[in-house]
Design a protein around this nucleic acid. Sequence first.
DNA 1: TGAATTCTACTAGTATGGAAGTATACCAGT
DNA 2: ACTGGTATACTTCCATACTAGTAGAATTCA
Lengths: 239, 239
Amino acid sequence: MRPLIPIPTTPDGAVSLQVCARIRDQIIRGSLVPGQRLSETEVASTFDVSRQPVREAFIRLAAEGLLEIRPQRGTYVRRISVASALTTRLIREAVEVELIRMLIPRITAADIESLRQQIAQQEEVASQGSPADFILLDEAFHRHLAEAAGAPDVSDYLEALNVQMNRVRNMTVREFAPDILVAQHRAIVDTLEAGNAEAAETAMRRHLRQFNIDLPTIVASYPDYFKDTEALTPHDTPL
Amino acid sequence: MRPLIPIPTTPDGAVSLQVCARIRDQIIRGSLVPGQRLSETEVASTFDVSRQPVREAFIRLAAEGLLEIRPQRGTYVRRISVASALTTRLIREAVEVELIRMLIPRITAADIESLRQQIAQQEEVASQGSPADFILLDEAFHRHLAEAAGAPDVSDYLEALNVQMNRVRNMTVREFAPDILVAQHRAIVDTLEAGNAEAAETAMRRHLRQFNIDLPTIVASYPDYFKDTEALTPHDTPL
DNA sequence: TGAATTCTACTAGTATGGAAGTATACCAGT
DNA sequence: ACTGGTATACTTCCATACTAGTAGAATTCA
């Protein structure tokens, strides 16, 4: 089995939570690959703790949809469901479009400026940074949109929805082309600055549907990281 | 402490999951009230199992947002956050409006008929059934809309989002006026049948914003079932 | 009387042993 | 060669004992 990367001091509270955080990180960043087996005993000895906290960490991660516990059989890193990735993307599009609508009448010049600065940062990281770094900036961008729209809490839910999609992005370093996303971000800000509601909505939809364009290639490259691969007939028409 | 209702045979698999399911049910149906304390030992002896499976059930329920585990202190039925209830409602509105848009071009006569039948059932239950029964019918109605729109999986996510809102409905039997909701359902179907996209969208928004109208009264009646009560300045304008 | 302190009875968290179940390798019989 | 049974080495799950940390009552001291 592919070894777990050893701990570099996680100064959290309960051991169970520390283990949970570390494994979650490794799954999202892709160093634990979908389908891989994780044994309670093995992880316990790796982290040098007893089995119980590991078990509880597994339960939490299973609840988050990152692990799959098959009773008396084994625990595995959950494969990414294509169907649910498509569904969460659809939900995200609906919500972000709504945010755009709320945003149009109340966006300020300061917002525009801040967003442009973020895009500049994204441009740098896009050329030289890792996908994980870019994802952080991307989330910050969308979070700013939600805040400016007057519904900051929404981004918490959106980011939770995005976990599976981010796993995809992180494991496909090659196929991942962040510069396209940066350009789309810029298009969104341009239309927002112009106060053109319809164009902004379209720009946002096009941006989020990029995922549907990329997904088939990725699934073809890493078929056994996914399940439900037959679901690849996205219900949305390309904008 | 208010006693837990003893088990009436839950034929599931693992003990941990049985306990989890029973407690979840009691929280959602309101027989375990927000803020109430739940001791691992006490629950364990009530269900006549050891502490460990109870503990694991608690972890699951905490991940679902139904319990709050305060380390070394105690475990409590989570109070309902007004802020997050408002946020989830907003998200739901965005998604259901998107479903309406997808639905308009593809809805069939059979769909309309089925929806009307469901409304007839709702009318019966509204006058004599319990909130829990009505909620089931309500969810079925919205699920049918999602299926007809070609995105059946969306309802799974929506129902998960709705858990906290349903807790509110279940504990407020008095204030709960399902006949208003039935009328709103009928308005939605009417506009859908007419093929009027804009009107259907408006009808759906009005329907879902009913929650924002009801919430202040409910919070005033049961203040200590909530936290964040100061968040009660909903960001949406009444349609 | 009042305030600080210690003691006690809780709590959740962890460690460990063993029970029940599953998959696989091995071997016997056809 | 192939099928069927069995032993074995796993797995997750549950029970129990113990640790550590918290809240509050009782006690002590000013």
